[in-house]
């Protein structure tokens, strides 16, 4: 990519920043506790919609990893999410009735908030049904990872989205608020992913898994992208391009080993619960698994793997501890 190409990327990034600024006007602060932010804090950003059922576990999971503050956008929830979040001491909440789709699946809103509060922080950007697993996450807090990444002069950490499902759909229905969704949705596909390289943004493009297998078998090119970069040492000039699949400037997308060896990477356990994802905006949360709904093929098969821990995922080649020991 020559000077012109790089300049074009710069313009795209500028446009995204401006767009984020514009969409920022849709956000109304509901609970603002950003005065609590400390320079060293690890922050979490997410857009929510009727996720009340899974919020308690979600917040607790990331608190345990060492996230200090949650900066959340509530896109018109009607299930009491906002009221619940207002009672949480480490949550700042914005509300908007704007269109999720027109904000490009919430990316614009989060780009705006991150530009404002995320600068200089390590920022986790996930959905409410995604749980981050990284090397040694059972013994080392997130801060250990970010300290290490920083000592390696690495700014971004990639994680593959791993669709989790239950063995039978009724296991899903029995989810109790506060419970770990992975307790029931503990199965995943271990080895049917395809990887290709996107030369424009230099990111990897991973597809496959149960959704590709059961819902996109006849149109695999449309199967959802599973490559994500959820953890970034944010700078106000950065911008996510689409979901957390890729970023600008492009150097941030090189969160994988392109020249030698692996870079450390993680996995986002993605537990879609059919009961908890009734969305008004139609196909908005295209990421939710719709197993259990009528006519869908069951994702569970005899080759499904049962989730144990991150070491298992590493042995399967779904994540890597890279140089970290």
């Amino acid at each position: 990519m020559g000077i012109l190409g790089s300049y074009r990327m710069r313009l795209i990034r500028k446009r995204l920043r401006i767009r984020a600024y514009g969409k920022g006007f849709q956000l109304r602060p509901a609970v603002d506790r950003t005065a609590q932010l400390q320079a060293q804090d690890i922050l979490l950003f997410a857009v929510l919609r009727n996720d009340n059922l899974r919020l308690p576990h979600f917040l607790q999971y990331y608190r345990d990893l060492g996230v200090s503050h949650f900066l959340l956008v509530d896109n018109g929830s009607t299930d009491g999410s906002a009221e619940y979040l207002a009672t949480q001491p480490d949550v700042s909440l914005w509300r908007t009735m704007g269109s999720y789709r027109k904000a490009r699946c919430g990316v614009d809103w989060l780009n705006y908030i991150k530009g404002r509060y995320g600068h200089g922080h390590w920022c986790v950007t996930v959905d409410a049904d995604e749980l981050l697993v990284y090397p040694f996450c059972d013994t080392r807090p997130l801060r250990a990872l970010t300290d290490w990444l920083e000592s390696c002069s690495v700014r971004a950490f990639s994680a593959m989205l791993l669709d989790m499902y239950a063995k039978a759909p009724r296991d899903d229905a029995s989810y109790v608020r506060g419970q770990n969704p992975i307790d029931t949705a503990c199965w995943f596909d271990s080895g049917n992913y395809t990887v290709s390289h996107n030369p424009l943004y230099n990111n990897l493009w991973i597809q496959g898994g149960p959704r590709a297998r059961t819902q996109f078998a006849d149109k695999p090119e449309q199967a959802p992208a599973l490559n994500k970069i959820p953890l970034v040492k944010w700078h106000r000039k950065y911008a996510y391009v689409s979901s957390t699949h890729m970023l600008l400037p492009r150097g941030l997308n090189l969160a994988y080993g392109a020249w030698d060896g692996d870079k450390a990477s993680g996995v986002l356990l993605h537990a879609g619960l059919p009961g908890a994802t009734t969305l008004a905006d139609g196909a908005d949360q295209s990421t939710a698994i719709t197993d259990g709904s009528a006519g869908e093929a069951q994702p569970w098969c005899r080759w499904s793997e049962k989730y144990v821990n991150w070491r298992q995922l590493e042995l399967l080649g779904l994540m890597s501890k890279g140089n970290w020991a």
Binding site: S158, V195, A255, G257, W259, G261, D262, S265
Partner: peptide, 15 residues
Amino acid sequence: QAPINPALHMRSRYL
């Protein structure tokens, strides 16, 4: 990891 172990497949590697 070193230098490249082709027998290992890692999602975080793509040369």
